[in-house]
Simulated scan of single mutants.
Amino acid sequence: MSHAIPPEKETGRTAQHTVVTGGAGFVGSHLCRTLIESGESVTCVDNLSTGRLKNIADLRENSRFTFLEADIVEPFQVAGDVDCVLHLACPASPVDYFGMPVATLRAGGHGTFHTLELAREKQARFVITSTSEVYGNPLEHPQREEYWGNVNPVGPRACYDESKRFSEAMTMAFRQEYQVDAAIARLFNSYGPDMRGDDGRVVPTFIKQALAGEPLPVMGDGSQTRSLCYVEDTVQGILALARSGETGPVNIGNPQEITVRELAEHVLELTGSTSSVSFVEAHPDDPQRRRPDIAKARRVLGWEPRVPLADGLKRTIASFAEEA
């Protein structure tokens, strides 16, 4: 099954026009590139608070790519017809949302409202990338879309967790009241090239430290688990949902579960680093287990991840090594 959004539409236009908010960020930039390569026109909207122009540098000379520097917490306009709005704009790493809690909440509230209003105005398909963090520190394992979660609404992670939970509620409200063609993708941990080495997420942190010969900081005793999905697979999952008629929420992630300590050892082996592992205090409310149930994505989207962890890590390590 092809996951690319078809370039032709009944309007007769030669290519679809997709708006990607947060398009200069990690997942967003990969999404923009995939859409351009499939023949789409793309408007990338980003305020560059966490996104980077270097992530989209290769796209800016393409006539089908437009970069709009704008903050979605304020109303914004996109010229012309729009077929699809993919809403990714929100600080997504602990370093960012711990440092910008109010901006994170506003991205989920005001930002999602304005982006949905754009989709409503343009009569466009709308997909928001929510997160596995809506499940909190889960009491159900693996996590199914029907699970309501175990979230601390006043803890230090609440700015991100509740921002996304509110975004989901806003999306469903627009679908119910205004009949916006909207859907929710719940992304589990994604990794790959173009991640910032300083964003605080586990894969770039481990790779950066290993390449520098410095200790890898493992939080707690390292027994907590993560399920890591290579960005190429994540993008294909988002596009599969965008081109479907599904509402969601739909989990997009890799069900292969690994402990953080095992991941550290894996990175050390793949980099050939002599770095040690250093155990540090865990963040408050750090989820202890994380693994998606992707039965729904397989059933309704025909999607599942393809890139094995070892291959994805090798590609990511190579990317970091080139930048070092």
Rank of each mutant, 00 (worst) to 15 (best):
S2V: 08
S2A: 02
R13D: 11
A15Q: 15
A15M: 13
Q16P: 09
T18L: 11
V19Q: 13
V20M: 13
A24C: 13
F26L: 06
G28E: 06
L31T: 12
C32I: 06
R33S: 12
G39R: 10
E40W: 02
S41W: 06
V42Q: 11
S49Q: 10
T50C: 08
L53H: 05
L53Y: 02
N55I: 01
I56A: 05
E61M: 01
R64S: 11
R64F: 01
F67H: 11
D71M: 04
I72R: 08
F76H: 04
A79G: 04
D83T: 01
D83M: 03
G99I: 09
M100E: 09
R106M: 10
H110Y: 15
G111P: 09
T115K: 05
A119H: 14
E121M: 10
K122T: 02
K122R: 15
Q123N: 15
Q123H: 09
T129Y: 04
T131G: 06
T131C: 09
V134H: 03
N137A: 07
H141N: 14
H141Y: 14
E146Q: 11
E146L: 08
W148R: 13
R157N: 01
D161K: 04
E162I: 04
S167Y: 04
M170Q: 09
T171M: 03
F174R: 06
F174P: 00
E177I: 02
D181K: 04
A183M: 10
A185S: 14
A185C: 13
L187H: 03
Y191V: 03
M195V: 00
R196Q: 11
D198H: 08
G200T: 06
R201C: 03
V202A: 01
V202T: 11
V202M: 14
L211C: 06
A212P: 01
P215L: 12
P217K: 09
M219K: 07
M219T: 08
G220V: 05
G222E: 15
Y230D: 10
Y230W: 15
V231G: 12
E232D: 15
E232R: 12
D233L: 11
I238H: 08
R243P: 00
N251G: 08
I252R: 12
G253D: 11
I258M: 13
T259H: 11
T259E: 14
V260R: 14
E262H: 11
E262C: 02
L263V: 07
L263P: 07
L270M: 07
T271R: 08
G272I: 05
V277S: 05
F279L: 06
V280T: 12
V280Y: 13
E281Y: 03
E281C: 01
H283E: 15
D285E: 15
P292T: 13
I294F: 05
I294C: 07
A295S: 15
K296L: 12
K296T: 10
L301Y: 12
R306N: 05
P308A: 04
P308D: 12
L309D: 09
A310L: 02
D311W: 05
D311M: 00
G312T: 04
S319G: 01
A324W: 14
